[in-house]
Each structure stands twice: as structure tokens, then as C-alpha cells.
Design a protein around this nucleic acid. Structure first.
Length: 805
RNA sequence: GCCGGGGUGGCGGAAUGGUAGACGCGAUAGACUCAAAAUCUAUUAAUCGCAAGAUCGUGAGGGUUCGACUCCCUCCCCCGGCACCA
């Protein structure tokens, strides 16, 4: 027997598989299409690290398993190489993104080949190629046609380091998601997608899709649907009224003040002349504050009094009107009603400015005293007091009752608000699809005609972001100056490019149709292959990519272009591989390159090692200390075929083989690769203990291992003179008659403590008397129950007999 | 502060109401070898014991149960996400 030399066999098989198109399903005639997808990588470094390889391996095991189950599996791959991440990398290495993308493409694809995944290499998608982004622009035009695109001057998140605007989803605690710089506010004309029109559908559909629960929760929180009421208050001596949004109108008998956002449009009309200087100054300062400044101030309240009062018609109370930056213009109505007794934030504000605090709710603790400390502020639950007709009601009942009452009186109107905002898609950068819009002096804003797509991204030498609020494309006259599609007069192009998340919001639709140049996706292909059957990716995309992709899919459904509205039937989040407790990143210097390990042990060993580290959904800390154990395991697999003989399978062999078939199949289906591997190890240990095995047993083990270690199993499959390829074989069938034990081990307990075990015949399983009698013969049991008669004997058939004394 | 996931041998982890520590790493002893590596065999939570076996044990405390790593309550700690969202 030759030595196991992975580097020799692995590249040999990779070449052969690709040449034979082993993993390329027949796109038009597949009988059981099954689409497995892992989020495509973005090249923001020279190559992949093992943290990137990890989820691809798990995805591949799943897809190979599905293929063996008889599905026509489609497992495509591509690169999300357009956008700010790749451009920032180009800036870092000081090279033009066109050049960088060529190099990284080659390198990434070479690595993705070396890991041995069953990709269909004839259908790659690169978002930065014009045959792809042409259709990204087409998608923008469809949105435009549907009335879901608008341009608006808005106060937007501006990243001073990346010199571009960011979507709300890309700002994390006031920090740019990409570079970590503090995000500022800037007034700019920007393009938006009306994702808020789909808020309810995006929320409600979550109940019916099979996704990791934590992702669904994150999306629900991000959409942030809230039922409440808009209450309109009259302002003393002023025709203007103030409308506030609240989810807790039940506490309105305790309302003592109103606070409006500094950006509130009618703010000035409430300001009395004697308060003018202070308020103007406050508004100016707070408008310039970045979100980071606001966060740095913590919960310390600031604010100014306008001098005006609003009337609480329930109580006749004159509520002072204040301006404070804790109230956000973007949420609700930009004004809140202050109920300091039952909202911590309102209480802090009232304390700071000595405003009256009224108790209208008594909580479970029964405290009905005056509220003077923040700990007494009852927010969650309780019974109404000091609230006339609401007194004695539970707060939830009171909420309904007062909403009815206010609507009847014409003081308020029920509304639903969302945390979700419209998707800002303009970027003042170079490396992205130009937004296909033309500005004509006569005709105004005109979309580029579909037949004129793509709007090619020109090669601009100085692609650096300018920080002027304009894209580098604005400096290219050849690009900017064009003709109006309507009147043919001279016109100018939009120079912003679209957000990189638009590129990835529809790529899964492109894979089955890559050869069509005249359409983004083919109808019959889409019908048979989509939606994606199994999607795997990182939880960090819970509210970015995954929400946008769902939105785009819904829009295309509504336009009749596709017949489904959820793109991913099943989604599972994978865990992260960390190194020394931190996420792998170049700046931390803890990046592990898979190439070295592949060279030394082979990709089969690395694959099995990564999957054996822990549960796929959890990830783990990469320590190469135990990788040698996996290499040893595969070496034993290599030697195993020498132990094969032509004898029939023994009863013992059949038992463990079928038990393992069941276990491994279940585990792969649930992405529990670590326990699948350990049962394969047990199976192999059994064969080595026997020092022989029937060829059939060896075959089963190879088949079960094939999804995990595709190269070595292919090699061994041939060495036992089976037909190429193991990856075209069916998953072994379970015969449940081998799973039934003839003899069963029953544990004997006394008061729940194990004292002995007995072996009983299968047929005695359900006969309590016999089992009890057999158990009582145990010497060790006798020691513990002495001569006392047990109070009770509990028998769980085939498992445990417990004597209670 | 809120939401989510965790806390089990020296280490990665297994067991989701029924023999805690599967499987792997590491460690110790032995075999082979001039020697080392590789490989093989045995042992390996802790304590007591020659052994049979006993006691104890899954972050802490309490509860439910014949029986709890697993379910319930209170609390501590770690990781991730969100956060002045009315």
C-alpha cells in the first residue's frame, strides 16, 4: 500500500471532476433541482483565510449529501467584488480596482478550487463585470418604474473616512460599519428605495420561513413595528398644533410636558421672544452633533424651554413645550409627550428641569407613593390610578379604552410606526454600478432606456473619493455629458454609484441564468431552480443583505417577473472561526491562511478538522494542536481498505453500519457535522478492532465520509475497484431491522442512583415483572435495598428500573 | 438598559428528562527501535480503595420529579447584537 499523499491525489481529482463536469447539473432537464448557496465572498484582501473557508466547507458537505440523496444539486460560486470593501482594499494597496479585481479573482477562485467544493464552475457571477451590473442597473430601473425610487435632500449618515454616505443599517452605534470612523450628519440629495412600503410583509412573512430563529428576531427588531396613537394637542395662543406619537396613551393623565426634536419644522413658531436666543443656539449645536457625540453624552438630558404650553384636554393641564435632542425627528412625529412617572427617559428629563411628576400606575409592588426616584418609575405593568374612568384597569385594557376614547373625541388617531427607514442607495464612490439616471434641463430627471444598459463604469485613473459629496465620476466629462433619452438635448448623467448591497440583493437569481445576455434571469430556469432551497451565511448580515434580498424579491414578484416572494426557503447562520478569542483580521495579525494547512495535510484533513472543532452554528477557536488527530484518522481510512475481504457482513457489522448511516444522515441534515464525524470515527475504530471488515462495510464507511473528505474517499473507492465516481453514488439505505437491539441494557437504580445494569432479551422489554425479578437478583442492588420492600418501582421499558426506598 | 447565545475534565466538545464526560487532542506507562519520529496497547474528572466498589461532580443558590447538564425561580460571569425608538 502506498503512503497517503493528499497533495498528489487532491489536485488530480479536482481537475478530473471539473473536466467531467461532475458537479454541473443539467439546468434545463434536472428532475429534482436543489439549490444550495453560501453567501459569496467579497475580495477585500489578497486571499481567503480559514475563517472564510469554514462556512464553505459546511455548505459543501450539505450539498454533497443532498446530491447523494438523489437531488440535482446546484452549488454555485461567485465574487461580490464591486463596492466599497473592494475599493477600500484597492486604496490600501494603492492600485486601481480594475487591476486588483483581476488579481483577486484568480487568487480567490484558485483557493476555492483547492478546498474541494462541488461548485459548478461554469456559472460564476462577478458583480463588477458589466454583464452582471447591467442587470443591477436594470433592477434600479424596475424599482423606478414601480415608483419605489425617490430622490430626497436629507440629513444622512456621512462617513468622513470613506467619504461617502451610508445606509442606516451600515451605521453601528454611530460608527461606520466598514472603517470604524465616527459618522457625521450631512444634508445631501440622495436616492432612496422605499423598503418601508414592504415593512409589514417583510415582518409577517418571517412567521412562515424556515430560518435560524436569531436572524428572524434580529429582523423583527430592526423592522420594529409599533402600534400606537398620534395625539394632537392644542397650543395656547397659537394656531399650530403638536402631534405626538405614543404607544402608552393609558398614562396620559400623567402627561406634564411636551418635547420636540431640534429639527421639528414648526419649532420656531412655539418659541417666545424671550427664549429666542437660547433656543436658536441649542438647535444649532444639536444639529451639528454627530451620533457619536450624542452617545458619548449618554443619558444626560439637555434641552430648552420654548415658552409655550400645550393643553392636555384630559386633565386641563398646561404642558410646557421643550426642545431636546433626545427626541428624534426621524421617528414617530418628531414630538413626544412627557409622562415622567412612567417612562424613565421622561423622568430624567423632568428631574433635570424640575417638571411635575404624577403617578397614574401602581405596579405589582403596590407602591403608590409619590415618585421621586428613577427606581419607582413603573413602565412595564400595573393598574391605573388617578385617571378617572381608567382607574382600576390593567394598563393594557386602559390603553385600548383610551385609544377608543381619544379617537371618538377626535383628539387622536391610531397609527403604526416602524423603526425601519427607507434604504439609501447612493454612494459617492467610484467602484460600483453607476446609477442609470440622466438629468435634462428640459425634461428633468429621466431614467436611462433599458436598451442602453449597461451604463459602463469608465476607467478613471484617480478613483479616490473626493469628500466633496460628489463621486469621482463627476470629474470625467466624457462620462457626465450625454444626450437626453427623451429630447436628445444635452444632458448630464447621475454620477453616484449604487450601494454594494444592491449588487448582492439579487445575485442568487442570476446563477441559473448566467449564459443569457438579453435578460437578467430566464423564466423557466428561475421556475425550476428558485427559490434557493438552502442558504447559509453569517449572522452579521441579518439586517443588511438578508433584508434587502427579501425586499427585492418581493418587488420582482409584485411586478410579475417571478412567482415567489421569499428568496431563501431555508436559511441557517453559521458560526465564526476566531483565533485567540478575536475575529480573524489582518489588522489584528491573527489571520490563518488555509494554503499552508492544505499543503501540509491536504484539504480533506482541514475540512474534517474545521467541521470537527464544534457545532457548525457556533464556530470555534482555531487551534491547530489537534489537527494531527484528524490526519491520523484519514490515514487510518487510507489503510482500512487493506482490511476489506469478500465475506458477508456480520451481524455486528450490520448493526454499527446502519446505526452510523442513520446518525450521520440526521446530523448532516441538521448541520451537526461535529457529531457526524465522531460517529464515523467510532465506526472506523470498530473496523480496526475487528482487524477486518466485509467490503460492503468498508463501502458504507467511504460513502458516509464522502461529503466530508471528497478526495480521499474517491481514491479509496477506486482502490476497492468500485466505479468512478463515489460522488455519484446514492446515500446508503437504512434497514431498520438492523437497528433493533436483540439484547437491551437496563440500568438499575436505587433512588435515582445507578447501582447496576442487566442485560435482558428484547422480548422481555415490556414485561415489568420479569425485569424487576431479574433486577432483584443483582448482588449490588441487594446491598442497597437490604430487606426493605421498595415503596415504589418505576420501570421505563428498555431503559431504567428505579427502586424507590 | 434591552434582545440573543453560552458557562460541563488539563483542552475542543458529547449527552435536551433516564448510566454525565461520546469522539478527538493532550498527558502517563508500556511495546517496537541503537535512538528518535511514526505506529500500536493500556490508563486518564476528583477523592478513598489492591480490587469489587463507594463518595462527589455540569457557574452559585433554591424548587419540581422516582430521576435534572437538561424543566421552573433568583443571582453571578463570558461572548455577540441593538440602544435616548416615544
Amino acid at each position: 500500500m502506498k503512503k497517503y499523499n493528499p497533495s498528489q491525489i487532491e489536485s488530480k481529482w479536482q481537475k478530473k471532476w471539473r473536466k467531467d463536469k461532475l458537479y454541473n447539473p443539467d439546468m434545463d432537464r434536472a428532475g429534482k433541482p436543489y439549490y444550495v448557496l453560501m453567501m459569496f465572498p467579497y475580495p477585500s484582501a489578497e486571499g481567503l483565510h480559514v475563517g472564510n473557508m469554514y462556512p464553505f466547507t459546511g455548505t459543501d458537505i450539505y450539498s454533497r449529501f443532498k446530491r447523494m440523496q438523489g437531488f440535482d444539486v446546484f452549488e454555485p460560486i461567485g465574487l461580490d467584488g464591486f463596492g466599497i470593501h473592494s475599493e477600500n482594499y484597492a486604496l490600501k494597496v494603492n492600485e486601481h480596482p480594475f487591476e486588483v479585481s483581476k488579481r483577486t479573482e484568480k487568487r480567490f477562485y484558485a483557493q476555492l478550487t483547492a478546498i474541494g467544493n462541488a461548485f459548478d464552475w461554469t456559472r460564476t457571477v462577478e458583480t463588477y463585470k458589466s454583464n452582471y451590473y447591467k442587470w443591477t442597473q436594470w433592477l434600479f430601473l424596475q424599482m423606478y418604474k414601480k415608483g419605489l425610487v425617490y430622490k430626497k435632500k436629507a440629513s444622512v449618515n456621512w462617513c468622513p473616512a470613506d467619504r461617502t454616505v451610508l445606509a442606516d443599517e451600515q451605521v453601528i452605534s454611530g460608527i461606520c460599519e466598514r472603517c470604524g470612523a465616527a459618522v457625521e450628519k450631512k444634508e445631501l440629495e440622495q436616492w432612496f428605495f422605499k423598503i418601508t412600503d414592504y415593512a409589514d410583509r417583510l415582518l409577517n412573512n418571517l412567521d412562515h420561513i424556515d430560518w435560524s430563529e436569531k436572524i428572524k428576531i434580529a429582523q423583527r427588531n430592526w423592522i420594529g413595528r409599533k402600534e400606537g396613537i398620534n395625539i394632537t394637542y392644542k397650543v395656547e395662543g397659537n394656531p399650530e398644533k403638536i402631534t405626538v406619537f405614543t404607544t402608552r396613551p393609558d398614562t396620559n393623565y400623567g402627561a406634564t410636558f411636551i418635547v420636540i426634536a431640534p429639527e421639528y419644522p414648526q419649532a420656531l413658531s412655539f418659541i417666545k421672544p424671550e427664549n429666542l436666543e437660547d433656543t436658536k443656539q441649542y438647535i444649532k449645536v444639536s444639529k451639528n452633533k454627530s451620533s457619536k457625540d450624542r452617545i458619548a453624552e449618554g443619558r444626560e438630558k439637555t434641552g430648552v424651554f420654548t415658552g409655550s404650553y400645550a393643553l392636555n384636554e384630559l386633565t386641563g393641564y398646561k404642558m410646557s413645550i421643550w426642545i431636546s435632542d433626545f427626541v428624534l425627528m426621524e421617528f414617530g412625529t418628531g414630538a413626544v409627550v412627557g409622562v415622567p412617572g412612567h417612562d424613565k427617559r421622561d423622568f430624567e428629563f423632568a428631574q433635570k428641569f424640575s417638571l411635575e411628576v404624577k403617578r397614574v400606575v401602581v405596579g405589582r409592588d403596590g407602591d403608590s407613593s409619590k415618585i421621586t426616584k428613577v427606581e419607582q418609575v413603573q413602565e412595564e405593568e400595573g393598574t391605573m390610578v388617578n385617571s378617572e374612568f381608567l382607574n382600576g384597569l390593567d394598563i393594557h385594557e386602559a390603553t385600548v379604552k383610551i385609544m377608543d376614547f381619544m379617537e371618538e373625541k377626535g383628539w387622536g388617531k391610531r397609527v403604526t410606526t416602524y423603526h425601519l427607514r427607507d434604504w439609501l442607495i447612493s454612494r459617492q464612490r467610484y467602484w460600483g454600478p453607476p446609477i442609470p439616471i440622466i438629468y435634462c434641463e428640459k425634461c428633468g430627471t429621466v431614467p436611462v432606456a433599458e436598451e442602453n444598459l449597461p451604463v459602463e463604469l469608465p476607467y478613471i485613473k484617480d478613483f479616490r473619493p473626493k469628500g466633496t459629496g460628489k463621486s469621482p465620476l463627476a470629474s470625467d466629462d466624457n462620462f457626465v455629458n450625454t444626450k437626453c433619452p427623451k429630447c436628445s438635448g444635452s444632458a448630464k448623467r447621475e454620477t453616484d454609484v449604487s450601494d454594494t448591497f444592491l449588487d448582492s440583493a439579487w445575485y442568487f437569481l442570476r446563477y441559473p441564468s448566467t449564459e443569457f445576455d438579453n435578460k437578467p434571469f430566464d423564466d423557466s430556469r428561475t421556475k425550476s431552480w428558485l427559490p434557493v432551497d438552502m442558504y447559509i451565511g453569517g449572522a452579521e448580515h441579518s439586517v443588511l443583505h438578508l433584508l434587502y434580498a427579501r425586499f427585492v424579491t418581493m418587488v420582482l414578484k409584485d411586478m410579475g417577473k417571478i412567482n415567489f416572494e421569499e428568496p431563501f426557503e431555508k436559511f441557517r447562520a453559521h458560526g465564526l472561526i476566531i483565533k485567540e478569542g478575536a475575529k480573524m483580521s489582518k489588522s489584528k495579525g491573527n489571520v490563518i491562511n488555509p494554503d499552508e494547512y492544505i499543503k501540509r495535510y491536504g484539504s480533506d484533513t482541514l475540512r474534517v478538522y474545521l467541521m470537527f472543532m464544534g457545532p457548525f452554528s457556533e464556530g470555534g477557536d482555531f487551534r491547530d494542536a489537534s489537527i494531527g488527530g484528524i490526519f491520523k484518522f484519514l490515514n487510518r481510512v487510507w489503510q482500512m481498505t487493506d482490511l476489506a475481504d469478500d465475506a458477508e457482513q456480520t451481524g455486528e457489522e450490520l448493526k454499527i453500519a446502519h446505526k452510523t448511516i442513520k446518525k450521520v444522515g440526521n446530523d448532516i441534515e441538521n448541520l451537526r457535522f461535529n457529531t457526524a464525524i465522531s460517529s464515523l470515527m467510532e465506526f472506523l475504530n470498530f473496523i480496526f478492532k475487528q482487524k477486518r471488515a466485509s467490503k460492503m462495510t468498508v463501502k458504507i464507511l467511504l460513502l458516509l465520509l464522502a461529503p466530508f473528505a471528497p478526495h480521499i474517499t474517491e481514491e479509496m473507492w477506486l482502490s476497492i475497484r468500485e466505479k468512478y465516481s463515489i460522488h455519484k453514488q446514492s446515500w446508503p439505505k437504512i434497514d431498520s431491522k438492523y437497528l433493533e437491539e436483540v439484547q437491551i441494557n437496563v440500568v438499575i437504580q436505587v433512588n435515582g442512583k445507578v447501582r447496576d445494569t442487566i442485560l435482558i432479551e428484547k422480548d422481555m422489554k415490556s414485561n415489568k415483572e420479569i425485569v424487576e425479578k431479574l433486577a432483584l437478583e443483582s448482588e449490588n442492588l441487594k446491598k442497597f435495598i437490604n430487606k426493605t420492600k421498595p415503596k415504589k418501582v418505576i420501570y421505563i421499558p428498555g431503559k431504567i428500573i428505579n427502586f424507590v426506598i
